[in-house]
Design a protein around this nucleic acid. Structure first.
Length: 821
RNA sequence: GCCCCGAUAGCCCAAUGGCAGAGGCAGGCGACUUAAAAUCGCCACAGUGUGGGUUCGAGUCCCACUCGGGGCACCA
C-alpha cells in the first residue's frame, strides 16, 4: 500500500523515539570510538530561535552527524550565554526578575531546538547564569588575579551613557556602543582589567598554527586588532624637567627630521608640562583639554579633520643632534598608545605634516625617496629611500638606517628597540546587575581581599528591593545585606566589589565546561579535557571574529600556563556561516522583512527548512531567503522518500548481486558526497543526493526495477546521507527500508573503487583549445592511438583547413589539442 | 584612503588549468486524469562583469578597471 509523504506526521513519529534511544549521547566512558568535539556557538536567549540560528545549527549539525556516520564518538553540546543586558533591560521594562525572562526564553529555545532535531547531547547543557557555572567564572578570576592577570586601575574608559556602563574597546564600534548605538564617551573610573596584553605576542604568533583551518579573513582581523609594530623608544631631555620623556617611533631613522614633539592632550604628562608654563599657555591648554574631552570618537576619528593643538612654550632636546624641539599638545596623539607622546617628523609622516602645515612648523626632508621635497609639495613621503641631512645615517636605506639609529641611540643611552600593540587590556567591570559578581572584598585596612574559594560562588542577591535602573553605579552596591561583609583577612567591616563581569568572560571558557557541566568540584576535568579538547570544529558567525575568539584564545593560553590544558588554541577548525537575509537586507522588525522561523517550520517542516539552509549555497555565503525555495526542498524530500518506499528487496541481501550501473552511480555518489561534506560544500552534497535520487527513480521506473539489490543499496546510502540535512525524512526512509533506528548511527558504506573504474570514456579533440570532435575510447588507449584517431577526424581536418598543425598536445585518454599558432 | 572577498543561464548555484552544467527554482512540451493538483518524463536557455597578459589550452593563474559586499582607518 503506497502512502503519502507527510512531514508533520514524521516529526511526531520520530521525535519521541529519539528521546528514548538518545542517539547523540557522548557520555559512555566505555565507548571506544575515536572522539571528535563539534561545537556551535551558544545562543543568547533573547526570545525564540530565529532564521539565523536555524542556519547555524543546520550547518553545525551536518558536520556533527557526518562524523558520527564516519564512526566517531561526537560530542556536540549546547548551552546558553545567559547573562547580559537584554535580560536586564527587559526585566526593568516589565518590573520582573531577569531570571524569569532568561529561563523562560531558554525553555522556549530548548524546545525549538529539539523540534529542529539538532544532534545535541542533551545531557551536556549549561547556562552561564546558573550559580554552578558562574561560580567557576569567579574561581578563574581568582586564579588570574593571583597570576597578576587581573588588576584594577584608574583610567579614562569607554562609557555608554545609555547602558550606563563601561565598555571594552572591542565593544566600541565606530565610536558607538555595540549594543545600543549610542555615542560612547570617556569617563575616569577605577575598573578591573584582564592583562591580555601580556599574551599579545602569543595571540599573534599562534595565529600561524590556525592557517588553513580558520577563515583567512578572521586571522587577518585578529592580526590587525592586535596590531604589533616594531620600532624604538627614544629618550628626549626636557628643558626645565628633571626626568626625560620617552617617545615611541617606528621610524627612528627619521630622527634628524624631527621638528617638534607632540604630547597627547589628555595625558598626565600634558597637564604636568602645561603647569610649568606661562599663565596664558595654561589657560589655552585647559580650554583645549576641555574640548578634547567633549569630542567623541566619531569627531575624533574623522580623517579630514583639521589638526589642532597648543604650543606649551617648552622644549625637548633631540638626542642625536641636540636641537631644541618645541613641545605641543594635540588630540591626534593618543594617551594610551606607546608613551602618549611622539616626535613630529612632518616630512615623512602624513599626520605630522598635516599638523606642521596647520601650525607653520618647519618640514625637513631626511629621506630622499625620489619624490618631490615634502617641504615644497606638502605631501609626506613615507616610502623607502636614501637618508640625507642625517649625519652618520646619510646614504643608508630605511632598514639599515633604523638599525644604525637605534645603535647610535643605544650608545648614548637614549634609546632602545621597542615594540607596541594596538591591543589594550580587557576591561571586564560592568556596572550592571545581571552578570557574575567579582569575587573581591574591599577592606579599608587590607585593601583588595580575595573571597576565599570555599565561599564561592558569590551569588547574586535577589532583585527584591534593588533598583536595576541604570544609574552609573552597580545596582549591587545598594544591596546592603549583600555588600557589607567582614573582611576575610582581618574581620573588620568591609564591602564586596559590586561590579559584575563582562559576559564575554562567561563565553571565554564555556567550551571546557561542557566536559562536565554539573561538576561542583572543578571548572572542568583536565582528564576529560585531554580526551576531548580542543574543539575539533567550531561553527558560528563571523560577528565574533575578534571579541569572543580572541578572549577564548587568551583564556586557553592562560589555562595552558596553569597546566590545566595541554593545548594553546581552543578551536582547531572554524567555520563561519553567513547570514540569512530577506530581499538583500538583514531581517528586522523595523524593516518589515522579518521571516519567522516558526512559521517556516509550520509551513514546510523542519527537514525542508534545514535542507534549504544547506542547499542554498556555500555555508559562508549569505542566504537570501527570497532566492531559495523551502517548498522545492520539501518536494525533493518527498521524491527521495518515495524511492525508499518503492524498494521491494529484502534487508541484508547481497550488494554484489545488484545492477552494475546503479551500483557505480551509488559508489560514485559516496565518493563525491564525502568530498563535498569534508570540504564544507554542503550545497554540492545535497545536489549529489538529488542526482542519486534521480538515478534511483529511473532505475525503479524504467531500469533494473524496484526489486534489484542495487536500488536498495542506493536507497540506504541516500537515507544515511540525507540524515545530515533532513533527519526526520531520513529516519523514516531507513525504517521503510526495514532498519531499526537510528539512521544517524548507521555507518556509510565504504566506497568500492572497483565500481568506479571505467572501461571507456569520452575523449575530446581540440583545435586551438576549441572543441572539434569527441570519441568514445578505451581508458587504456595509448597516446599514439589517440593522436591518430584525432588526426583522422573529419571535423578536425575541416578545422585545420588552410592551417598548419604546429604543436600537438596529447593527454591520453582524455584529450588532444592541436595548435596552429 | 588601505586591505580582503565576490561577479557563470531569467534566478540560486556547480565546474583537480582540459567538452561551460552537477543540482535546484522559475519557464515550455508530453504522459497519467473527465479536469485539475500531485506524480513521471522530455526540452530550451549563457560562453563566465570589462580590457589586457601567461599558456598548446583560462570561468579557473597574473595585471588593470567597473560594480557589489565586508574589514580597518590619526596606533606614531
Amino acid at each position: 500500500m503506497q502512502e503519502e509523504y507527510n512531514v508533520s506526521a514524521l516529526q511526531e513519529k520520530w521525535l519521541p523515539v529519539w528521546d528514548q534511544i538518545k542517539p547523540f549521547d557522548s557520555s559512555n566512558p566505555e565507548d571506544s570510538r575515536p572522539k571528535k568535539y563539534v561545537l556551535d556557538m551558544f545562543p543568547y536567549p533573547s526570545g525564540d530561535l530565529h532564521m539565523g540560528h536555524a542556519e547555524a545549527y543546520a550547518l553545525g549539525d551536518v558536520i556533527a552527524r557526518y562524523w558520527i556516520q564516519r564512526g566517531y564518538n561526537v560530542m556536540h553540546p549546547i548551552g546558553w550565554d545567559a547573562f547580559g543586558l537584554p535580560a536586564e533591560n527587559a526585566a526593568i521594562k516589565r518590573g520582573l526578575d531577569p531570571r524569569n525572562w532568561t529561563y523562560e526564553n531558554i525553555d522556549q529555545q530548548k524546545s525549538s531546538m529539539r523540534r529542529y532535531a539538532c544532534s545535541f547531547d542533551w545531557d551536556r547543557v549549561l547556562q552561564t547564569c546558573d550559580p554552578i557555572y558562574y561560580s567557576w567564572n569567579q574561581w578563574l578570576f581568582l586564579q588570574f588575579y593571583r597570576r597578576g592577570l587581573a588588576y584594577r586601575k584608574n583610567s579614562n574608559v569607554n562609557w555608554c551613557p545609555s547602558c550606563q556602563t563601561v565598555l571594552a574597546n572591542e565593544q566600541v564600534v565606530n565610536g558607538l556602543c555595540e549594543r545600543c548605538d549610542t555615542q560612547v564617551t570617556k569617563k575616569a573610573l577605577t575598573q578591573w582589567y584582564f592583562k591580555v596584553t601580556d599574551y599579545a605576542d602569543r595571540l599573534l604568533d599562534d595565529l600561524k598554527t590556525l592557517e588553513g583551518n580558520w577563515p583567512s579573513k578572521v586571522l587577518t582581523m585578529q592580526r590587525n586588532w592586535i596590531g604589533r609594530s616594531y620600532g624604538a623608544n627614544l629618550t628626549f631631555e626636557i628643558e626645565g624637567r628633571a626626568e626625560p620623556i620617552e617617545v615611541y617611533s617606528t621610524r627612528p631613522d627619521t630622527l634628524f627630521g624631527a621638528t617638534f614633539m607632540v604630547v597627547a592632550a589628555d595625558s598626565d604628562l600634558a597637564s604636568e608640562l602645561a603647569a610649568g608654563s606661562s599663565a596664558e599657555v595654561r589657560t589655552q591648554f585647559h580650554s583645549y583639554l576641555e574640548k578634547t574631552k567633549k569630542a567623541n570618537d566619531i569627531e575624533r576619528l574623522s580623517t579630514d579633520r583639521e589638526k589642532t593643538g597648543v604650543f606649551l612654550e617648552r622644549y625637548a632636546i633631540n638626542p642625536l643632534n641636540g636641537e631644541r624641539l618645541p613641545i605641543w599638545v594635540s588630540d591626534y596623539v593618543l594617551a594610551d598608545y606607546g608613551t602618549g607622546a611622539i616626535m613630529g617628523v612632518p616630512a615623512h609622516d602624513e599626520r605630522d605634516i598635516e599638523f606642521a602645515k596647520a601650525m607653520g612648523i618647519e618640514i625637513r626632508m631626511v629621506v630622499d625617496t625620489g619624490e618631490e621635497d615634502p617641504a615644497k609639495s606638502f605631501v609626506a613621503t613615507v616610502g623607502d629611500g636614501v637618508m640625507v641631512n642625517s649625519g652618520e645615517l646619510d646614504g643608508l636605506t630605511k632598514a639599515d638606517a633604523i638599525e644604525k639609529a637605534i645603535e647610535l641611540l643605544q650608545e648614548k643611552g637614549s634609546g632602545k628597540k621597542a615594540k607596541n600593540y594596538r591591543l589594550r587590556d580587557w576591561l571586564i567591570s560592568r556596572q550592571r546587575y545581571w552578570g557574575t559578581p567579582i569575587p573581591i572584598i574591599h577592606c579599608d585596612k587590607c585593601g583588595e581581599v580575595e573571597v576565599p574559594e570555599d565561599q564561592l560562588p558569590v551569588e547574586l542577591p535577589p532583585t527584591e528591593g534593588l533598583d536595576l535602573q541604570p544609574k552609573g553605579t552597580s545596582p549591587l552596591g545598594a544591596a546592603s545585606d549583600w555588600v557589607n561583609v567582614d573582611c576575610p583577612k582581618c574581620g573588620a567591616a568591609a564591602k564586596r566589589d559590586s561590579d559584575t563581569m563582562d559576559t564575554f568572560v562567561d563565553s571565554s571558557w564555556y567550551f571546557l565546561r561542557y566536559l562536565n557541566p554539573g561538576s561542583e568540584e572543578v571548572a572542568f576535568d583536565p582528564e576529560m579535557a585531554k580526551e576531548w579538547a580542543p574543539v575539533d570544529q567550531y561553527v558560528g558567525g563571523v560577528t565574533h571574529a575578534i571579541l569572543h575568539l580572541l578572549y577564548s584564545r587568551f583564556f586557553t593560553k592562560v589555562l595552558f600556563d596553569m597546566k590545566l590544558v595541554d593545548f594553546e588554541e581552543p578551536f582547531t577548525r572554524l567555520l563561519n556561516q553567513g547570514m540569512v537575509l530577506m530581499n538583500g537586507q538583514a531581517m528586522s522588525k523595523s524593516r518589515g522583512n522579518l521571516v519567522r522561523l516558526s512559521e517556516q517550520l509550520d509551513e514546510h517542516g523542519v527537514d525542508a527548512v534545514r535542507l534549504t539552509m544547506a542547499f542554498a549555497g556555500p555555508p559562508e555565503d549569505d542566504i537570501d531567503w527570497a532566492d531559495v525555495s523551502p517548498a522545492a526542498s520539501s518536494k525533493f524530500l518527498a521524491r527521495a522518500w518515495r524511492v525508499a518506499q518503492d524498494v521491494t528487496s529484502e534487508v541484508g541481501s547481497d550488494d554484489k548481486a545488484g545492477d552494475k550501473a546503479v551500483r557505480s552511480a551509488t559508489h560514485a555518489f559516496l565518493k563525491s558526497f564525502e568530498e563535498s561534506i569534508e570540504g564544507f560544500k554542503f550545497n554540492v552534497g545535497v545536489a549529489k543526493c538529488m542526482e542519486l535520487t534521480n538515478t534511483l527513480r529511473k532505475a525503479i521506473d524504467s531500469g533494473c526495477g524496484p526489486q534489484d539489490q542495487a536500488v536498495r543499496e542506493g536507497a540506504e546510502e541516500l537515507a544515511k546521507a540525507l540524515s545530515l540535512f533532513a533527519p526526520y525524512t531520513a529516519e523514516d526512509m531507513w525504517s521503510l527500508l526495514g532498519h531499526e533506528p537510528s539512521v544517524a548511527k548507521a555507518k556509510l558504506r565504504s566506497v568500492d573503487e572497483s565500481l568506479l573504474v571505467r572501461q571507456t570514456l569520452t575523449a575530446v579533440a581540440q583545435v586551438d583549445g576549441k572543441l572539434r570532435d569527441k570519441f568514445e575510447v578505451s581508458t587504456t588507449i595509448t597516446e599514439d592511438e589517440l593522436r591518430e584517431l584525432v588526426m583522422n577526424s573529419d571535423a578536425v581536418k575541416r578545422a585545420l583547413e588552410g592551417k598548419e598543425a604546429k604543436n600537438i598536445i596529447v593527454r591520453a585518454p582524455k584529450l588532444v589539442n592541436i595548435s596552429t599558432k
